[in-house]
Computed example of a mutant assay.
Amino acid sequence: MFTIEHDFDATVVTLIDEGGSHLQEDVVVSAFEDCVTINQFDPRLNEMRTITLSLAQVRDLGAALDLPEGAYQLEKPD
């Protein structure tokens, strides 16, 4: 399950784990004008963990999901 919210400065997608018996914490993906952040609560450390991706990294990640194993370099858009 997931939710989508449009805030003032970002689009926020929350991914809710509905899998088997070992559920993970929710993942919150926030898309800003210049980057994307991914947040997840870490219960072992009792704190929120954040990863920040550039828009180029997000583009590469999207492409990587549809490619076989290997090393790739995408051409920069004009």
Rank of each mutant, 00 (worst) to 15 (best):
residue 16 I to Q: 09
residue 67 L to W: 08
residue 57 Q to F: 10
residue 65 L to S: 13
residue 67 L to R: 06
residue 61 L to I: 07
residue 55 L to H: 07
residue 31 A to E: 11
residue 65 L to N: 09
residue 76 K to T: 13
residue 72 Y to E: 04
residue 6 H to C: 09
residue 36 V to W: 05
residue 70 G to A: 05
residue 64 A to T: 02
residue 60 D to R: 03
residue 38 I to P: 01
residue 51 I to M: 12
residue 52 T to D: 05
residue 32 F to Y: 14
residue 74 L to T: 03
residue 37 T to E: 08
residue 59 R to Y: 04
residue 40 Q to D: 07
residue 23 L to G: 07
residue 11 T to M: 12
residue 66 D to A: 15
residue 58 V to M: 14
residue 8 F to V: 12
residue 1 M to F: 02
residue 12 V to M: 01
residue 35 C to Y: 09
residue 31 A to I: 13
residue 78 D to W: 03
residue 24 Q to L: 12
residue 67 L to D: 03
residue 51 I to K: 13
residue 70 G to R: 01
residue 15 L to I: 09
residue 55 L to T: 13
residue 7 D to M: 08
residue 49 R to D: 11
residue 72 Y to M: 03
residue 48 M to Y: 05
residue 57 Q to L: 08
residue 3 T to V: 06
residue 55 L to Q: 11
residue 69 E to K: 02
residue 8 F to A: 10
residue 31 A to W: 04
residue 27 V to L: 14
residue 18 E to L: 07
residue 6 H to K: 13
residue 78 D to I: 02
residue 39 N to Q: 14
residue 28 V to A: 07
residue 49 R to T: 15
residue 64 A to R: 07
residue 60 D to Y: 06
residue 40 Q to P: 00
residue 44 R to Q: 12
residue 13 V to E: 02
residue 19 G to W: 04
residue 68 P to V: 02
residue 9 D to W: 04
residue 50 T to V: 14
residue 38 I to V: 15
residue 72 Y to S: 04
residue 33 E to P: 00
residue 12 V to K: 00
residue 75 E to I: 11
residue 68 P to F: 02
residue 6 H to V: 13
residue 40 Q to A: 13
residue 73 Q to Y: 12
residue 77 P to I: 01
residue 75 E to G: 15
residue 48 M to D: 11
residue 14 T to Q: 04
residue 21 S to F: 12
residue 5 E to D: 09
residue 42 D to S: 07
residue 57 Q to K: 08
residue 43 P to N: 01
residue 53 L to W: 12
residue 73 Q to W: 10
residue 37 T to D: 06
residue 7 D to N: 11
residue 68 P to H: 01
residue 52 T to K: 13
residue 21 S to Q: 15
residue 31 A to D: 07
residue 8 F to Q: 12
residue 2 F to V: 01
residue 26 D to E: 09
residue 77 P to K: 01
residue 40 Q to F: 06
residue 71 A to H: 11
residue 10 A to W: 00
residue 37 T to R: 03
residue 32 F to I: 01
residue 4 I to A: 06
residue 71 A to Y: 05
residue 32 F to A: 00
residue 20 G to Q: 03
residue 76 K to F: 10
residue 20 G to S: 09
residue 36 V to Y: 04
residue 16 I to S: 04
residue 24 Q to T: 06
residue 29 V to I: 15
residue 57 Q to N: 11
residue 53 L to F: 14
residue 61 L to T: 03
residue 41 F to R: 00
residue 42 D to V: 02
residue 54 S to D: 08
residue 12 V to L: 02
residue 2 F to D: 06
